[in-house]
């Protein structure tokens, strides 16, 4: 198992409240697999992603990436090092894509896509060339010296994908990366991301509230209930859909029945 999440719970504290965002979530993801966390807003899926990314320490439970515990039983020295952000062991292991591109407006596209390499201290002539080749491969050659404001939304999100992939992460975390895009751009980008990840055999976790997107892109779908976020069901996408690229999958005869059954399940969750 590549990624194992074991009885993970997380509670947010404020002065007046304690909100449990995740309760007893256990799941595992195989190497090279593409899974989706599907659920209504407020089901803690982004919290779960942040925990996997090592940005938040969960109140309870463990996360293992390739057998290495991410948070469990940290010594205080290690916790301090991580708080200072200098724990090298997790550096570059995961790549995170946000809802918006968050390209740095004061950096050129080239500087933006090399940012991860620079931060992790792995910027060499070789890795730089690889990142620029990836940029060209994704259809963005010739924009290296542009600033993000000169690019369209779709191009910016593609550049953000290159920035994420440039450090060659073992695990990709996609936090609704298509939700801010218009329909046409979104479909194209889904296709591109899917193909790129398959080509590089990356393991990926997609967070979304879009049922169609989840079916079209993933191998398995984890359905979460609203607060506190619980894993209620796992849908396994049939082989004939899973091997289709997203756009073709949407046209497939089995797509619609699957959509209906997930839809019903989500409706049932809402009414509880």
């Amino acid at each position: 198992m590549f990624l194992v999440i074991d009885r993970l719970s997380h509670t947010y504290f404020t002065k007046t409240t304690a909100v449990t965002a995740l309760a007893e979530v256990s799941l595992s993801v195989e190497k090279g697999e593409f899974v989706s966390f599907l659920g209504p807003s407020g089901c803690g899926k982004t919290t779960l992603l942040s925990i996997i990314a090592g940005l938040i320490q969960p109140t309870e439970g463990k996360v293992f990436i390739e057998g290495e515990p991410l948070w469990a039983q940290e010594t205080s020295a290690k916790a301090a090092r991580r708080a200072a952000g200098s724990d090298l062991s997790t550096r570059g292991a995961v790549g995170y894509m946000l809802q918006q591109d968050y390209l740095f407006p004061w950096k050129t596209i080239e500087e933006n896509i090399l940012l991860g390499l620079k931060i992790t201290g792995t910027l060499t002539a070789e890795t730089k060339e690889r990142a620029l080749a990836l940029l060209a491969e994704i259809g963005l050659d010739g924009v290296e010296s542009y600033y993000p404001s000169q690019l369209s939304g779709g191009m910016r999100q593609r550049a953000a994908l290159v920035r994420t992939l440039a450090t060659d992460p073992k695990l990709l975390l996609l936090d609704e990366p298509f939700s801010a895009l218009d329909q046409q751009t979104k479909l194209k980008l889904e296709e591109l991301v899917w193909k790129t990840l398959k080509q590089y055999e990356k393991t990926a976790v997609l967070v979304t509230h879009d049922i169609e997107e989840a079916i079209a892109m993933s191998d398995r779908i984890f359905l979460f209930s609203r607060r506190p976020g619980r894993l209620v069901r796992t849908f396994i996408i049939p082989d004939e859909l899973r091997h289709c690229p997203p756009f073709a999958a949407r046209q497939h005869p089995t797509f619609s029945p699957l959509f209906q059954s997930i839809w019903k399940e989500m409706e049932a969750l809402e009414s509880v």
Binding site: L55, G85, S86, L115
Partner: peptide, 15 residues
């Protein structure tokens, strides 16, 4: 979110 991008790469406070 800019800081989040950097922190997912494991950036230090100075970075």
């Amino acid at each position: 979110n800019y800081l989040k991008v950097l922190r997912t790469f494991g950036a230090t406070r100075y970075q």
